[in-house]
Design a protein around this nucleic acid. Structure first.
Lengths: 161, 161
DNA sequence: TTGCTCCTCACGTCACGTGAGGTGGC
DNA sequence: TTGCTCCTCACGTCACGTGAGGTGGC
C-alpha cells in the first residue's frame, strides 16, 4: 500500500518535529503552534503520542509568513488571504489532470495574479520609502563629518590613540 | 519679556493640539498619548485646561517613530535609543556656543555616527531582502502567464466580454 | 533509565484600539 | 449655547513570550 509514491530520490515521507521546522524557519515553537491555531498552518499531522509532525512544505510556508510580516508588515489575517490563494494555485496543479473546468482554472489564476500584483505594488512602495530613508541617513552622516571637521574634533580613528 | 525670539517669518509659537499632530503624522491620538506615556515624546506642554499642545518638531518625531517602526521593524525601546541620540545631537548644536568641552562633543558625534551606521546597515539588509522578494514575485507572475498560455485559458482582458 | 523534546493550559507583554463618562475651547 | 475636540480610566486585541506541570520518543 502506497509503495509507488514519488519515485524521486529524497524520502518523500521525511517528517519533522516542531523544533525542527521552527529552527529552520527561524521562529519559536510557540509561534508555530500559534499559526496553526489561527489557521495559517492547517491539517498538521500527529503521531500516536500526540507529537505534531511537519513536512518540508511547512518550513516554506513559515518562511513565507515571516517574509510577509517583516517585509510588508501584513497582519496574520492578510497573510492568510495570500497563503490561501497560493494554496489554491498548488491545487490547480493537481486539478489540472483531475479535470476541473477551464473557467474554474482561469478564475483561480486571475485571483493569484491579482494578489501577485498587489504584493508587487506594496513591495515597490516599500522600496521607494526605504531608498528615501537611506538617502536621508547618508545626508545626516555627511553632516556629522562636516561638523566634526569644522570644530576640529578628534573622533579617534581605528588605531590612533 | 521674550520679545526677540526667532526673528524669522513663521510664528515660532505655533501650537498644535493632539488631533492636529496625529493627523499630520498619520497616527491616532491614542498612539500619540501612548508614545508620551512610554517616554518617546517627553515634556509635552499643557494649557491651563489640561489640553496637550505640540510644536512642529513633535510632528517630525512622530513621523520618524513610524519610519523606524514600519521600515525597520524596531520596537519602541530601540526607537527610544535612536531618538535619544538624535536629541543629543540637537543639544550639541546649542552646547556649541554654550561651550561644552570638545571631548564631550566628539563623544556625542561618535555616538550619533555609530547609530547612523547601524541604521544604514539595517536599511541595506532590508533593501536586499525586498529586492529578492520582488524578483520572486516577478518569477511567479511569469509562471502564471505561462500556465494560462499553455492551457489556453481566457483570463478576460479589460474590455473583452 | 536518563535527557531532551514534546504536550496543554494559562497568565504576561507590547503597542496600541475602543468605548465610557466627563470637561474644555473657538 | 451648541458641537467638536479634548481628558482620564479601563477593558479588549493581536501576536506572540514565558513558565508550570506532565507525557513521549531515540
Amino acid at each position: 500500500v502506497g509503495a509507488g509514491v514519488t519515485p524521486g530520490a529524497a524520502p518523500a515521507t521525511e517528517r519533522l518535529r516542531i523544533g525542527d521546522v521552527a529552527r529552520e524557519a527561524g521562529v519559536s515553537t510557540r509561534t508555530v503552534r500559534y499559526y496553526e491555531q489561527v489557521g495559517l498552518l492547517p491539517d498538521v499531522a500527529r503521531t500516536a503520542g500526540g507529537t505534531r509532525t511537519y513536512g518540508r512544505r511547512d518550513v516554506e510556508v513559515l518562511v513565507r509568513i515571516r517574509e510577509l510580516q517583516t517585509l510588508l508588515g501584513f497582519d496574520l489575517d492578510q497573510i492568510g488571504t495570500v497563503l490561501a490563494a497560493e494554496r489554491r494555485m498548488d491545487e490547480l496543479r493537481a486539478e489540472w489532470r483531475a479535470g476541473s473546468s477551464a473557467a474554474r482554472q482561469a478564475q483561480l489564476l486571475r485571483e493569484a495574479m491579482a494578489i501577485n500584483q498587489r504584493l508587487r505594488a506594496e513591495v515597490d512602495a516599500k522600496l521607494t520609502e526605504l531608498r528615501r530613508f537611506r538617502r536621508d541617513l547618508d545626508t545626516k552622516a555627511k553632516r556629522y563629518r562636516t561638523v566634526a571637521d569644522e570644530r576640529g574634533l578628534d573622533l579617534g580613528g581605528p588605531g590612533a590613540p
